[in-house]
Amino acid sequence: QLNAMAHQIQEMFPQVPYHLVLQDLQLTRSVEITTDNILEGRIQVP
């Protein structure tokens, strides 16, 4: 299920590496919260 959620987020934010999306999802278990984390700059994109 997390993989499906990660792919959904990757479609919206292809610039964010998959492993970072998955790592955040493991903590949040939420597409909405992880999306917010990306938008708020809480996930550092190399």
Rank of each mutant, 00 (worst) to 15 (best):
N3D: 12
Q15S: 12
L22C: 08
Q26V: 12
E40G: 11
P14Y: 03
I33P: 01
Q1R: 12
V31C: 09
I9D: 00
P14M: 06
M5V: 06
L27A: 09
S30K: 04
N3G: 10
I38L: 07
F13Y: 08
E32P: 07
E32K: 14
A4E: 12
Q10G: 08
L2H: 04
M12R: 13
E11P: 03
I33K: 14
N37H: 08
P17K: 04
M5P: 00
Q15N: 13
F13M: 03
L39E: 05
M5D: 05
M5Y: 09
I9T: 02
L22S: 02
Y18R: 08
A4P: 04
I9L: 10
Q26I: 14
Q26G: 07
T34H: 02
T35Q: 07
V21W: 03
L22M: 09
Q26D: 07
L39D: 02
L22G: 01
L39G: 03
Q1D: 14
Q26E: 12
S30T: 04
V16G: 00
T28K: 00
Q1A: 12
N37T: 02
R29C: 12
R29Y: 12
D36K: 15
V45F: 12
F13S: 01
A6V: 10
H7A: 13
L39K: 13
P17D: 07
L2F: 11
V45Y: 13
M5N: 04
V45W: 14
E32R: 13
H19S: 09
I43Q: 00
M12C: 08
T35M: 14
Q8K: 14
F13D: 01
Q23F: 11
T34K: 00
D24P: 05
L25E: 01
Q23A: 14
T34E: 01
A6S: 04
L39A: 07
I43Y: 04
V16M: 10
Q1V: 13
Q1N: 14
E40P: 02
L2Y: 09
T34S: 04
G41M: 06
R42K: 08
L20P: 02
A6Y: 05
P17F: 05
F13I: 02
A6T: 04
I33G: 07
V16K: 01
I9H: 00
I9M: 05
V21K: 00
D24M: 08
N37Q: 01
T34D: 02
I43V: 09
V31W: 10
E32W: 09
M12L: 11
G41S: 05
S30R: 04
F13V: 00
R42G: 03
E32M: 10
Q44T: 11
L27E: 11
M5W: 15
G41A: 05
S30C: 07
I38P: 00
N3C: 15
M5S: 04
L39R: 14
M5E: 05
P46D: 11
D36L: 15
D36R: 15
E11Q: 14
L20E: 05
A6L: 08
E40Y: 14
P14C: 06
L39I: 11
V21Y: 02
Q8Y: 13
G41W: 06
A4S: 09
Q44V: 12
Q23V: 07
Q8F: 13
T28Y: 06
Q8G: 07
Q44A: 11
F13R: 01
P14D: 04
G41N: 07
H7E: 10
Q8H: 10
P14F: 04
E11A: 14
V16N: 02
I38H: 00
D36I: 15
V16R: 01
T28A: 02
I43F: 08
I43P: 01
Q10I: 14
L27K: 12
H7T: 10
Q15R: 10
Q23M: 12
R29L: 14
M5F: 08
R42V: 04
T28H: 05
V31G: 05
V31N: 06
T34F: 01
N3I: 15
Q44H: 11
H7G: 08
E11R: 15
L27I: 14
T28D: 02
T34P: 00
R29E: 08
H7S: 11
Q10S: 13
A6K: 02
V31H: 05
H7N: 11
E40S: 15
L25R: 00
M12W: 08
L27W: 11
L25F: 03
G41D: 04
H7L: 14
T35K: 12
Q15E: 12
G41R: 06
Q15D: 13
I38R: 00
Q26K: 11
L20C: 09
T35D: 01
H19W: 15
Q8N: 07
Q15K: 10
L27Q: 11
Q1K: 13
D36Q: 15
F13Q: 00
E40K: 15
I33R: 13
D36E: 14
A4L: 12
Q26L: 14
R29D: 07
N37A: 03
L2E: 04
V16T: 04
P46M: 12
H19I: 10
V21E: 02
H19D: 13
H7W: 14
D36P: 01
P14E: 03
L2A: 04
H19A: 09
L20A: 07
L25K: 01
P14W: 04
V16H: 04
E11F: 12
D36N: 15
R42A: 05
T35Y: 07
V31Y: 08
Q10E: 05
L22H: 04
L20W: 08
L20F: 07
Y18A: 06
R42N: 05
I33W: 08
V45E: 08
P14I: 03
T35L: 12
V45I: 13
M12A: 08
N37D: 00
Q10L: 14
H7Y: 13
P46T: 11
R29P: 01
F13N: 03
F13A: 01
V16I: 15
L2D: 03
D24C: 09
Q15P: 00
H7D: 10
D36Y: 14
V31T: 06
R29K: 11
E40N: 15
I38S: 01
L2M: 09
I33V: 12
L2W: 14
Q10W: 15
R42H: 06
L22V: 08
S30H: 03
H19M: 09
I33T: 08
N3H: 15
R42L: 07
M5K: 06
H19Q: 09
A4I: 12
L39Q: 07
I9W: 02
I43G: 02
E11M: 15
M12I: 09
P17H: 04
A6N: 00
Q10R: 13
H19L: 10
I38T: 01
L20V: 08
A6R: 03
I43K: 02
D36S: 15
L39V: 09
M12H: 07
R42P: 00
